[in-house]
Simulated scan of single mutants.
Amino acid sequence: MALNATIHKALLQIADMDRNVYGEYNLTIARHPSETDERMMIRILAFALNVPADDLNGKLELCKGLSDVDEPEIWERDLTGEILHWIDLGQPDERRLQKAHGRAGRVSVYGFASSTPVWWSGIENKLTRQPRLAVWQIPAAQSQALAALAERSMQLQINVQDGGIYVTTDKASVEILPIALKTAQA
């Protein structure tokens, strides 16, 4: 018998001073049976860091991710269905990233394992011609601290200022300092 996804609810209150994005977002997250708290919380963080200031050109959506290999974890699509931003987590292979780069206006990857620098050094040279690709590492200790905030129903305040991210609940707070392994060219 197949296991069903577990539903989590998150209310995000975002104050991103670096991008001038402020708002409140209700997310319903279908957590795949094989997904960890850490991965789910990185997915929520990636959503918060990439949510557009408005939905005039389309909106950011959580996708099937682990359940469908043809979809990212998160994407932003315009009103015609064109993919504006493809967001993946973990350590996808270079073929997946090249395919995503061909389909989307921007591609972002958020790695969160301690082996992320090793993974990136192995594929970095194969992706030098992908100017719209950005790769970020969330330090493992920080992503694990973020995972400790996971609950079935969450209220998260996410503040971004000068590249630092502060995620706060009524019980705890976590500081996250992402490391840019590759930035997208404008």
Rank of each mutant, 00 (worst) to 15 (best):
A186R: 14
R95L: 12
G65I: 04
G81P: 11
L97E: 09
K182D: 10
D68R: 11
I74P: 05
V135G: 11
L79W: 13
E24H: 08
N20H: 12
M41K: 06
V160A: 00
G58T: 05
I83P: 15
I176E: 03
I74C: 08
Q161C: 08
A113K: 06
G90N: 12
P178L: 08
E73N: 14
E124L: 01
Y22G: 10
G23C: 05
G23N: 07
D54P: 03
D37H: 07
A150Q: 08
E82C: 09
R129T: 12
F47Q: 00
V21Y: 04
T80A: 07
R95V: 08
H85K: 13
D162P: 04
N50H: 15
E94A: 15
L133P: 10
E82P: 05
M1N: 07
T80S: 11
Q130K: 05
V135Y: 07
L11E: 15
T28N: 04
R31W: 03
I179T: 07
E124N: 02
I176G: 00
E71T: 15
S34H: 09
Q130C: 15
S173Y: 04
M17I: 10
D18M: 05
G81Y: 07
S153C: 01
M17D: 06
L60G: 04
P52G: 06
D16K: 12
T183K: 10
A48F: 09
H85D: 04
H8P: 00
N50I: 10
E94H: 13
V167D: 03
A140T: 01
K9Y: 11
I87V: 14
L60F: 13
A148Y: 00
G163Y: 09
Q91D: 11
A53F: 14
G23P: 10
P92N: 03
L3Y: 14
P131R: 00
V174E: 02
L62E: 11
I29L: 14
H101A: 15
E82Y: 15
A100F: 00
E151I: 01
I29D: 04
D16Q: 08
K59H: 03
Q144M: 03
E73G: 13
D54A: 01
W136S: 06
P52K: 15
G23L: 12
M154W: 01
K126D: 11
M41W: 02
P33N: 10
E61S: 13
E175N: 02
P33V: 04
E38T: 08
E35C: 06
S114I: 02
W75G: 01
Q137F: 02
R95K: 13
C63G: 08
Q161S: 09
A172E: 08
E151D: 13
V174P: 06
T183D: 07
K59Q: 04
H101L: 07
Q144R: 05
A46T: 04
G102I: 00
